[in-house]
Amino acid sequence: MIPPIEWTLSGQATPLAARTWPNPDARWLAVLVHGYGEHLGRYQHVADALAGMGAMVVGADHTGHGRSGGERALIGDFEAVVSDVDAVVTAALDGHPDLPVVLVGHSMGGAIAVRYAQRFPDRIAAMVLSAPVLGVWPVLDLLEYDEIPDTPVDPSTLSRDSSVGAAYAADPLVWHGPYKRATLAALDQLLQTISFDQPLGDDLPVLWLHGDADELVDQADTRAGTDRVRGLGFEEHTYSGARHELFNEINRDEVFADIAAFTARAVKG
């Protein structure tokens, strides 16, 4: 296990809790972009796997998430979060300017990563999307209610490994309450912005990973979004029986092997 170096970053809205997993032999920089309600403390094994692929790994808890500041699970402007990701990239490249950057975005973090690629296409060399929220997401239908129902994430939808759901449910840094209206409205705006902005460049390698048993982010809903932004460098893998958190699934070794093969082809460093 590679112990992370913890540091603080001045975000657009709040101070952000950031982590770096150093690698003196790094050939590329992996930037983790986590999902809704969670935090990077759940990604130690992901960082270890990426380091084994030759990466230095970095990331920050989004505003309102994990150890970062702000009201819990509240994001009022995703463009500001994209700017926060760019601040992480900038800080990480200080002293390592030649490392190619690969965004690794999960779920809501996948949408943030795609938006980053639209805004900063010259900053990244490749992108990995794990069950990204793109296109349409039925959770946004909650905006039709005058009062948002208390429908938190069901831990059983995360993985076939029951210990993953149990750890998620017991994690005090995970948000277990209802969705915030402002967050849903901002995410709805983000998805519309992505769909109507420029597609990803044909020279950007992108790997989309999804489980066909994902009940939290349906693969068909995501495809409605990927079809609008995909370029010629777009690849996809579907895992039979896998649920939402592919990095925590029982076939995680297969998932990491696919990422390793992809980055070996995509990253020139």
Rank of each mutant, 00 (worst) to 15 (best):
S10I: 12
L129P: 04
D61Y: 01
D146T: 13
A47N: 07
T8C: 08
M56W: 00
D218L: 14
Y145K: 04
L129G: 04
L74F: 07
A220I: 10
P121T: 03
L187M: 15
G135R: 09
E144C: 03
W208E: 08
R119C: 11
T90W: 00
A266D: 07
H244G: 05
I148D: 09
V174S: 11
T263C: 09
T157Y: 06
I2R: 07
V255S: 06
L74Y: 07
L29A: 06
L129C: 06
P100R: 06
I124K: 12
A186P: 13
V58L: 00
S163E: 12
Y116K: 09
S240K: 04
T193C: 02
V153M: 15
V164Y: 03
I5F: 02
E79P: 01
L246E: 12
H62C: 09
I112F: 07
L173E: 10
A131S: 15
M56D: 00
G95W: 06
E6W: 01
A113W: 04
V128H: 05
V136S: 03
V206Y: 03
L32P: 10
A266I: 11
E144L: 12
L190Q: 08
D171P: 14
A260L: 05
R265Y: 00
A213T: 00
G66W: 02
G76E: 15
R119L: 14
D227P: 00
D227W: 01
E147Y: 04
I250E: 14
V33F: 03
A55D: 04
D202G: 15
H237V: 11
P178L: 05
R252H: 09
H45A: 08
N23G: 11
A170C: 01
E147V: 12
E144V: 07
P138D: 13
K180M: 11
S240L: 05
S83H: 03
G241Y: 06
D188I: 00
R27P: 01
V85W: 03
H106K: 03
V33C: 12
T193W: 02
E38I: 14
D258W: 08
